[in-house]
Amino acid sequence: MGELTLRPGPMPTGRAAGPTPLNALGDNVLTTTLDKVINWGRSSAIWPALFGLACCAIEMMGTVGPRHDLSRFGSELFRASPRQADLMIVSGRVSIKMAPVLRQIYDQMPEPKWVIAMGACASSAGMFNNYAIVQSVDKIVPVDIYLPGCPPRPEALIDAVVKLQRKIRGEPLVKRPA
């Protein structure tokens, strides 16, 4: 039984994909190519956990909606069971009562798994600088992508997903203009 401890800073995020058995073989050409293929597969089929918290969950639903259509990226299969999900979109404020549950859901997700802290509340508690809210979700789960906005527009969430895909493939997140 673990105990919930709120960490002062963000949790360390390692290599996004987590250790794969292939990594142990060393970086010869074959494994790096295979690695690339696997990462391509992982980044192209990110299934989020069906897990909505607050306002941002509505925009998360909007992202799935026909105007924005997250399914274009193969990510519309929101899985109700955390065991089948790859991505946790923490969409909204996490209350202190909810924190252990959130962590449990995270623990139930199989590796490799990613977290997007969607919106100001999840990334930093936003306006709710008070007793009830976990001040940024990165104190309970490691966050891969932070997404500001209150709530972020669906386009912004799509942008976050695209950046997460880049992160999984090991590319730089922000492509600078030439």
Partner: peptide, 19 residues
């Protein structure tokens, strides 16, 4: 999107299991 099933399969194949 024709490679989508391949990506799904690849991902599921290399996913660790949690039970």
């Amino acid at each position: 999107g024709l490679l989508q099933p391949a990506a799904d399969g690849l991902k599921l194949f290399f996913k660790s299991s949690s039970a």
